[in-house]
């Protein structure tokens, strides 16, 4: 009985938080169209979150492409279809691994820093200070971060895709001796615009989700040092799980 009671309370709390996060995001987004414009702060966030995640995205993209080529080659070689390697690598990266792994990396690198930064601003009363200096923290702090992550993720993931396909080419063609023409030709032949759209829609949705969850967790963190630490961990976990769940839903739409 205890278990059911706890489960019920947790569900209720989850629903309450979901509603609260949605409200906070909507309030922040509504301020997008109100003066003062936050362009400069959007650029600063694009720098911190987008440019800051560049290195890790390139590294993970490269190794993802490489391992896919290696693994794919040995599987395909059994059927004598090594020429399909490019298509296999490209399809996996563009449709699934790029958006999901890219989102994970951005959650780890940028999302956690969003939550921690906003949480610390709450603890040290910096958000109250902004409030008292007649600057709306929702407009100044939350809005630019949500928008920046939403726009940065598609750019980062596209880069992940390109680097991954390139790294797969290096391993497949230069290391394992797949025909270079076949790699690209099959990739181009098998992947259509349809697959691209699927990937891009995912990244935009994931980016928005990461922005909303991580800003919310920071803004509503219990204003103590432990509270911020806990919120940061929770933000990473909740954002990652949400990405996987939404990924399944979107994949079933786009198949």
């Amino acid at each position: 009985m205890m278990v059911f009671g706890r489960l019920g309370r947790m569900t209720l709390r989850g629903i309450e938080q979901f509603g609260d996060a949605t409200m906070l995001a909507l309030q922040a987004l509504a301020l997008m169209f109100r003066r003062p414009w936050q362009g400069k702060h959007f650029v600063l966030q694009l720098y911190a979150l987008g440019v800051g995640s560049l290195a890790i995205i390139i590294i993970t993209g490269a190794f993802t492409g490489m391992v896919l080529a290696l693994q794919g080659y040995y599987t395909l070689a059994k059927f004598g279809s090594e020429s399909l390697l490019g298509a296999g690598v490209g399809m996996s990266i563009i449709r699934e691994l790029g958006p999901v792994l890219g989102a994970f990396m951005v959650i780890g690198r940028a999302g956690s820093s969003i939550t921690a930064e906003i949480g610390i601003m709450r603890v040290t009363e910096q958000t109250d200070a902004l409030e008292m200096m007649a600057v709306n923290p929702k407009q100044r702090i939350i809005l630019p971060r949500i928008v920046a992550v939403t726009l940065a993720l598609p750019l980062l993931v596209s880069l992940f895709d390109v680097v991954g396909i390139g790294a797969g080419y290096l391993v497949g063609v230069d290391l394992l001796g797949v025909n270079p023409g076949a790699y690209m030709a099959e990739l181009i032949a098998k992947i259509g615009m349809h697959d691209m759209y699927g990937g891009w829609v995912k990244t935009v949705v994931f980016g928005f989700l990461i922005g909303v969850i991580c800003t919310y967790m920071g803004y509503r963190a219990e204003p103590t040092t432990e509270g911020v630490a806990k919120a940061t961990t929770q933000a990473v976990v909740i954002a990652s799980v949400s990405v996987l769940i939404i990924d399944y839903v979107l994949t079933s739409f786009f198949l």
Binding site: I120, T124, E125, Q126, A129, A134, V135
Partner: peptide
């Protein structure tokens, strides 16, 4: 926010914006 442009507040733990240096903090408003 209009009213607050004529208010100031000194917080217990200062609450300086930690991404800005002293000059930019004072110049912020």
């Amino acid at each position: 926010y209009q009213l607050r442009e004529q208010m100031g507040m000194l917080f217990q733990y200062s609450a300086l914006l930690n991404s800005l240096n002293v000059y930019d903090n004072v110049a912020f408003p």
